[in-house]
Simulated assay, not measured.
Amino acid sequence: MIYKIIVLDLDGTLTNEKKEITPRTKEALIKAQEQGLKVVLASGRPTYGITALAEELELPRFEGYILAFNGGRIIDCKNNKVVFEQTLDQNLVPKLYYSSREAGLEILTYKGEGIIATKKTDQYVQIEASINKMKVEEASDFLQQIEYPINKCLIVGAPTPLHQLELQLAEQLKGKIDIYRSADYFLECVPVGIDKATSLNRLITELHIQSEEIIACGDNYNDLSMINFAGLGVAMANAPSEIQKQANYVTYSNEEEGVAHVVEKFILDQK
């Protein structure tokens, strides 16, 4: 099979624990793009938190794409244009806010090139800020200080209470909003029908590419849809066992340059 697109999750997949792309991984992806492969970066991160990595991999030059907010926004890196966008129903945000506060958890969203959160110093808010290299504004009145439209809210906190809230909100808001975790301490709240596979399907339809011609690499539950959708669904060795079981192939961990291994094995070595 000649693969035409590789779709890469970022945290725990493309980047190492330092949130960096290793020289070997970068070299493999540049070589693959020179051979015609399109690279798509697909993440729960906001667009601003992905752009630097896209530029490092020269996606503007090679006409790659960004799938931000778990697929809620698709960006064509060639011209920085929004190809697709779906925003969160603002009438549902108060429910997310009050539920998170009652559970003793923090909530955040994105405002321009920054984050607006209920508590700036919360350790999990700071993790999100560090990942995306974004400044945090602490809201004295979160609901009033949001600038709509927004693509998602992120509820953050310790895994056990967060999982309990996930079950509660998934039941209460079924059919109105999609709820899932992108990390043990991150609960994604996105528009209904938004996931990486759905947005990827929109993109490849425009590009006249078949799902069988896609490699998708990921390590967490929000990657599962695209791993199942792709012709070659790849799980990282650091992914939970449930995800590894559903993948076509399990590569090395993100600390062992698993993405580089996939590109070398299935793209570069085939030439």
Rank of each mutant, 00 (worst) to 15 (best):
F84K: 05
F84S: 03
E85C: 04
L88W: 08
D89A: 05
Q90K: 05
N91T: 10
L92N: 15
L92Q: 12
L96M: 13
Y97H: 14
Y97F: 12
Y97S: 11
Y98W: 10
S99G: 13
S100Y: 05
R101P: 01
R101W: 14
E102S: 14
A103G: 06
L105N: 02
L105P: 00
E106F: 07
I107W: 09
I107E: 06
L108M: 11
T109Q: 06
T109Y: 10
T109K: 15
Y110W: 11
K111C: 04
K111G: 03
G112R: 02
G112P: 04
G112H: 12
E113A: 08
E113C: 03
E113P: 03
G114K: 09
I116Y: 06
I116G: 05
I116N: 10
T118Y: 08
T118P: 02
T118C: 05
T118Q: 01
K119L: 14
K120S: 02
T121W: 07
D122E: 09
Q123S: 13
I127V: 15
I127H: 00
E128N: 06
E128G: 09
E128V: 12
S130D: 13
I131A: 04
I131C: 04
M134K: 02
M134I: 00
K135I: 08
K135S: 13
E137T: 14
A139V: 01
A139H: 02
S140F: 05
D141Y: 15
D141V: 10
F142G: 09
I146S: 04
I146N: 04
Y148W: 12
P149M: 01
P149L: 00
I150L: 07
K152D: 00
K152N: 14
K152F: 06
I155E: 04
I155L: 13
G157T: 09
A158R: 08
P161N: 07
L162P: 03
L162M: 08
H163L: 13
E166M: 13
L167Q: 05
Q168W: 09
Q168G: 03
L169G: 07
L169W: 15
L169R: 07
A170F: 10
E171D: 13
Q172M: 05
Q172P: 00
L173P: 02
L173H: 01
K174L: 04
K174N: 12
K174R: 14
G175F: 09
K176E: 14
K176I: 04
I177Y: 00
I177V: 13
D178Q: 12
D178T: 15
S182F: 03
S182K: 01
S182D: 02
A183S: 09
A183D: 08
A183Y: 05
